[in-house]
């Protein structure tokens, strides 16, 4: 159902930033910190989206996804591995008999500059290859022109092409200029059937920021109150440190409640965050500050 955009609330940028900085002052220590770090680890979409990706690299990435750090075998696995469509079958094979999902970007990622038919084919190909989750990009050009119904129809069409696969809609907030636009795009995506809304491709700077995430989380909350349907959230790009990850978890808890604190409803799109989380977890276990050289690079 198409949302009434006249009712989109304008966003108070200063207010959002102040709320974020207030929430960032929460101090999380000891057991709760360890719990938070492990939760964050279980929410990662371990990602490689480079032109030079090879089957070998994807296999290594999957190995790390299943067993993030061999000396601590009880750690949770990451939530999913995120790759380009032509790497999906390799990841699927490497991850069989594990509970790690395969996510694939599709729809002419990262620019989204292609015909709808091309995007649909791209999506169907990824699903046929075995992707459990599809990360699509919206046409930012059309959005900025004000062609909102185009975006709505596009998302609805891709959702249909996904079948059983979960659909994450990338808004690429770094190109949407204002927080009010972010709110509008979030509303459109959710009404068009998105299972998750996601901040960024990771190819544009700024990528995920906390103010943008807060605006999207509030959109999810309002949508949930209106329709009763839960939608997930995925900030992606630029989240490299465990400390940032914990700050994001606080935002989620304070905006949406504990119900959303699970990998089913919240994900981090990241690659280097995994190692920093592992280093912090090992620091908590041993009391000794860690070095990157003792952790695999994948």
């Amino acid at each position: 159902m198409y949302p009434d955009l006249k009712k989109t609330i304008p966003i108070d940028t200063i207010g959002v930033e102040e709320r974020v900085s207030r929430l960032n002052k929460r101090s999380i220590k000891k057991e709760s910190k360890v719990q938070g770090l492990k939760l964050a680890l279980s929410m990662i979409d371990h990602t490689t989206l480079e032109g030079k990706d090879s089957p070998g690299k994807v296999k290594q990435l999957c190995q790390k996804a299943k067993m993030p750090y061999a000396p601590l075998p009880d750690l949770p696995t990451v939530a999913a591995v995120c790759v380009y469509p032509n790497m999906v079958s390799i990841a699927k094979e490497a991850l069989k008999n594990s509970n790690v999902n395969v996510a694939s970007v599709a729809t002419a990622f990262p620019s989204g500059m292609a015909q709808l038919q091309v995007k649909l084919d791209d999506t169907k190909y990824a699903v046929d290859q075995g992707a459990d989750e599809i990360d699509m990009v919206i046409s930012r050009g059309e959005f900025l022109k004000g062609n909102y119904s185009f975006i709505f129809d596009e998302i609805a069409a891709i959702k249909e092409a996904c079948g059983d696969a979960h659909l994450k809609v990338i808004l690429e907030t770094g190109e949407l200029e204002t927080l009010t636009n972010v709110r509008k795009a979030s509303d459109i995506a959710m009404h068009a059937g998105a299972d998750f809304i996601k901040t960024s491709t990771g190819k544009i700077s700024p990528a995920a920021t906390q103010p943008v995430t807060l605006v999207m989380l509030e959109a999810i909350r309002d949508y949930y109150r209106e329709t009763g349907r839960m939608v997930g959230m995925k900030p992606a790009g630029g989240i490299r440190k465990a400390k940032q990850a914990l700050q994001y978890l606080v935002l989620v808890k304070e905006t949406l409640g504990a119900q959303w604190l699970s990998k089913d409803w919240f994900r981090f799109g990241a690659s280097s965050l995994t190692n920093d989380l592992l280093m912090q977890i090992v620091k908590q276990e041993t009391g000794v500050y860690q070095s990157n050289i003792y952790f695999s690079n994948d």
């Binding site: 009391g287 000794v288 500050y289 860690q290 070095s291 990157n292 050289i293 003792y294």
Partner: peptide
């Protein structure tokens, strides 16, 4: 203690 035990 923290300096000499730091793995980095």
């Amino acid at each position: 203690d923290h300096l000499s035990s730091h793995m980095d």
